[in-house]
Design a protein around this nucleic acid. Structure first.
Lengths: 204, 204
DNA sequence: CTAAATATGGACTGATCATTCCGTAAATGT
DNA sequence: ACATTTACGGAATGATCAGTCCATATTTAG
C-alpha cells in the first residue's frame, strides 16, 4: 500500500466538500448523517453502538457508510468533535444571554444537558474510552479546558486566569452531578445540591 | 423448567459457603476469584471485559466459571457490590483516621481513588450501564447516597441531615474531578481545583 | 454513445462474543 | 469396590461484530 493510501485511510475517505465532478451523486446529506450518528453514539456509547444501529439510523448501506466515513472509529471522532463544538457554543450562549447570574446559569446548563438522561456525551465517552484511547482523551481534555475557560471569563473577564481554579471547581461540581442523575438520584436532590454549592461558591 | 430452577438461575448457582459434602472439591478460592474479576471489570468495564479475559485472569475454565458464578452479569453484580462495600469502608476509615480535616481528607480520597487511573469502578459502571440497567443504577445510587451520608456525619455528627446538601456538593465535586483525571488534566491542576473548592466550601 | 468515476444494496468474511455440553477426574458415603 | 456427586478442560454453538467485495446504478466528460 502506498503512503498516500495510508494517509487517505488515516484521515478518512473523500469525506466532505467534494467537487461535483463525475460519478453518481450521493443520495444522502453527509452532515445530517453525521448528526444522526452522533445521537446514536450519545445514547449507546461507542462500543454498544453497532454498525447495524448506525447504518439503520443513518439510512445508509454499509458501502456508503465506509465510502463516506472510512470507519466506525473515524466517524466517532468526527461526531465527538462536532458535539464538543456545539456544546461549547451552547454554553457560551447561556453565558451571554443570562440575565443576572451567568455562572450559575452555566452550572445549571452543564448539570442538566440537553438530551434528557443521556448526560454529556463527552463525559460519557471520556469515562468509557479515554483510559485506552489517546485521541478521545485529548478531545475530552480540550473540551473540559474550554468549559473552564468560558466559565472563568464569565467570572472575571479582566483576569480569567485568576478565576481558573474557581471555574474548574464549578465545572467539576456540575459534571459530578451528572453521575448522580444517571444513578437515579431525584432531580430535586440534585437541584438542592447545586443551590447549596452555588450559594457558597458565589461571591454574591 | 421448574420454579426452583428459575430461582436457582436468578440468584446464581450454589455459589458460596457450600457444605463439604460429596463431589470433587474446588481447586480455587471463590473469593479470590471474585476479587480478580473485580479488578478486570474495574480496568476494562463490563462490556470490554470478555470471558476470556475473566477466566484467564481468574485461572478458571469456562465450566468452573459458569458453575460457580452463573453468568457474566451475575458475577459483575457481585463484584460491584463487593467494590461498593470495600470503598465505603475505606472512606469511613479515612474519615476516622484523619488528623484535623476529615472532610477534606475524604474529598481527596474520593478524587484520587486507589487503583491508579482506573477511577472509581462504580462511577465508571454507572456512566456505562446505569441508563440501561436498573440493577446497576440502584447499586450506584445507594453507593452515592452512602458516600453523602458518611460525609454528612463527618461535617456534623449531631445534625447530619442539615449537612446533607453540603456533603452532596463535596461528593459531586470529587466525582467530577475523576473525569478531569481520566481526560489527562494534570494532577497539579486538579489539586488546585480541589484546594480552591475546599477553601471556599469549608466553614473554617 | 461510450468511457470513466462514484454510489448503492446486500451478500460475504473472519473474528470474537457469551454460553452450553460432554467426557473425564476427584471427592464422599455405603 | 461402587454409586453418587461435584469439578474440570476444552471443544462446539449460534449470535453478532466490524469491515470487505462485487454486481449494478447513476452521474459527468468527451
Amino acid at each position: 500500500m502506498s503512503d498516500t493510501a495510508d494517509i487517505q485511510k488515516a484521515i478518512g475517505p473523500k469525506s466532505s466538500g467534494r467537487a461535483p465532478g463525475p460519478g453518481r451523486p450521493r443520495e444522502f446529506d453527509e452532515s445530517k448523517a453525521l448528526e444522526t450518528a452522533l445521537n446514536v453514539f450519545w445514547q449507546k456509547g461507542f462500543e454498544a453502538a453497532s454498525l447495524d444501529d448506525l447504518t439503520k439510523a443513518m439510512g445508509l448501506s454499509r458501502s456508503s457508510f465506509y465510502g463516506t466515513f472510512g470507519s466506525k472509529q473515524a466517524l466517532f471522532q468526527r461526531a465527538l468533535v462536532q458535539y464538543s463544538q456545539k456544546a461549547l457554543d451552547n454554553l457560551q450562549d447561556v453565558a451571554d444571554t443570562a440575565e443576572n447570574d451567568p455562572v450559575g446559569a452555566m452550572v445549571e446548563a452543564l448539570a442538566d444537558p440537553q438530551g434528557g438522561s443521556r448526560g454529556c456525551m463527552l463525559i460519557n465517552c471520556v469515562t468509557e474510552l479515554a483510559p485506552h484511547d489517546q485521541d478521545v482523551a485529548t478531545i475530552g481534555r480540550r473540551h473540559l479546558e474550554s468549559i473552564e475557560e468560558i466559565i472563568a471569563r464569565a467570572i472575571d473577564p479582566d483576569n480569567p486566569d485568576t478565576a481558573r481554579d474557581q471555574a474548574s471547581a464549578y465545572a467539576s461540581l456540575a459534571i459530578g452531578t451528572l453521575a448522580l442523575r444517571k444513578a437515579g438520584v431525584p432531580a430535586e436532590r440534585i437541584a438542592k445540591t447545586l443551590a447549596q454549592a452555588k450559594s457558597v461558591l458565589s461571591p454574591d
